[in-house]
Nucleic acid binder design. Structure first.
Lengths: 333, 333
DNA sequence: GTGAAAGCGCTAACAA
DNA sequence: TTGTTAGCGCTTTCAC
């Protein structure tokens, strides 16, 4: 038999409203009644039905996190601390997390089942595409959201990001100062906003020197681990034109390292390598690699904080947080 | 104004039931009516309220995933492929994921807010403790669940796991065959079931040789990255008694590697090192480390598969899947 | 302080 | 085939 709020009310000899008040604490009842109700709840082992509560109160205490594809998640060391940051903040604020992976590029469905999206009070959305359907949907449905990464129209939207342009500028500049001029940039898919920002940073550093950034030195790759090896291979002998590589996603790291090793190109003597946003890989290979810390935990924590603020109307105007980046030098002496 | 199923029904000049049928496809209506309703839905931009649907249908199409603490998630390379496997399977079967991190050891609350747990059709629960409150709650609430990892009472519960005892046996045996007798085992917290299984495997291999497994060669550590370095350090000079290490969680890897390096103990010449369940770290240091592949993606995929089967009553009796393990040798010649 | 009752928006059994 | 309507279990207003 189902134990509902009514069961409890009957047993305690009160109305359902009284039980609800005790549960929520939104209204004070007399001590005797309160005790009676609490006893009934205890004895019956009553647990409120959250769905019914959600329906009546129009509040789910749940936040949706739209992340990247599972292929991407698998090899992404950025993902874990980001998620941890989100969860920690939400836990503090008594919210929960609903996780959506991105299956948009899967062949079997060209339109995501966005109607499934609803039982959330707000959403976190990672690396939106240039024209993002999820973003459009959330806007249209009036669901508050915070973008992780910089969106196409920053002025209209809440977001938190690291300054990717700065990061990529710092990385490029660092290489330039080391005497590198022919740098190979291994970037993500062109339709990601972050790729746009990445490219800007490289360009800034080159522009500053009055150098041209050639198109063939910018390689765009799908976010999959194996790709980078193949990409370098397909460059063939031209690889020797380059004296440095910037990898914009850690997922490319292993492929790059393997390739360099297979071709007996040592790092950093003949080849210098910079990775964005990865402390893990960097640490393992500590003596040979420079990386930039993109502080993913902080991003997660901040974005959740901002979202809850919006949900609870503590923040009204579109705004953003930019998490600072640090260059972590790990070069051998 | 709120657009509900009634708005649509009125506009199309039909009943709410008709609209519901079109939406769910659970009952066929005449082509004309169907078209009329679809048009109304389209024009109004109607999206069904999922919460109301859940309440009425008593089905959420959502699965809860009880994972470890965020501290643990942060450095766990096992987590990503596990999650990816879960998500991929759930997506195939049209289910969604609600993610709960474990804050049980946090000081501020000794009892988790389990009542928040309810809007799920089933749960995946990772590495349950010896007496797990979540597990008890799920049982009591009659929420179907699958344990990832081997539970305390395997015969009563659905679970999927790798054969951890076998894995740890294989690792230990491997070392023994290499001529190692003094092996240091770096294990997780003692109240985790998996630690129990790990220990069993080591013991089996030693028993087989008629050797004793000494208590001080079994080090139990919290699941945090820094711990392993300190643990080794505190062993002091005794470290030279050991010629091999088995790390039972990848999270200890970095600390161990750093320690060995700092103390000029080279791997594997003087010291052999085996890690369980990590292909990432293993790959990076390919020539010097042996690891065991615990196939986390498969575990995730399988456990989700099993859970949905239970939810949809295709599986009735407690059962389990054991994912096979492989020794990955990466020793230098 | 307490209770009655009207929703919340949808599903599905039943009737027509 | 289509419509009526009684729930689903809780919250919250309003009257007492």
């Amino acid at each position: 038999m189902k134990i509902t709020i009514e069961t409890v009310a009957k047993k305690a000899g009160v109305s359902t409203a009284a039980v609800s008040y005790v549960l929520s604490g939104k209204q004070k009842l007399s001590p005797e009644v309160t005790v009676k109700i609490k006893k009934a709840i205890e004895e019956l082992g009553y647990k409120p039905n959250i769905i019914a509560r959600n329906l009546a109160s129009k509040k789910t205490w749940t936040v949706g996190f739209y992340t990247s594809s599972t292929k991407n998640i698998r090899g992404d060391v950025f993902f874990n601390p980001l998620l941890a940051g989100i969860l920690d903040n939400l836990h503090q604020q008594k919210y929960q997390l609903h996780l959506y992976a991105d299956y948009l590029n899967e062949t079997d469905e060209d339109h995501p089942d966005l109607s499934l999206t609803q039982p959330i009070d707000g959403a976190l959305i990672m690396n939106p595409r240039v024209n993002d359907v999820y973003l459009e949907y959330l806007k249209q449905q009036n669901i508050p959201f915070v973008v992780i990464g910089t969106p196409a129209e920053p002025e209209k939207v809440f977001y938190v990001d690291v300054d990717l342009t700065a990061a990529s500028y710092i990385a490029t500049k660092h290489l330039i100062l080391k005497g590198h001029r022919n740098v190979l940039f291994i970037l993500g898919p062109e339709d990601l906003m972050q790729t746009v920002h990445h490219t800007q940073g490289c360009k800034m550093a080159f522009d500053e020197m009055g150098w041209e950034l050639s198109a063939e030195s910018l390689v765009h790759l799908p976010m999959a681990e194996e790709e980078s090896y193949e990409a370098l291979k397909s460059i063939g002998e031209d690889i020797h034109k380059y004296s440095a590589i910037v990898a914009f996603h850690d997922i490319y790291s292993f492929g790059i390292m393997s390739f360099l090793k297979d071709n007996q190109i040592s790092v950093p003597q003949n080849m210098m390598y910079i990775s964005l946003g990865n402390s893990l890989f960097c640490r393992v290979n500590s003596p040979t690699i420079t990386s930039i810390d993109l502080a993913p935990y902080d991003i997660g924590f901040q974005s959740a904080e901002m979202l809850v603020d919006i949900i609870e109307k503590r923040r009204m105007q579109p705004s953003h947080s930019i998490i600072p980046v640090n260059l972590i030098k790990r070069e051998s002496a």
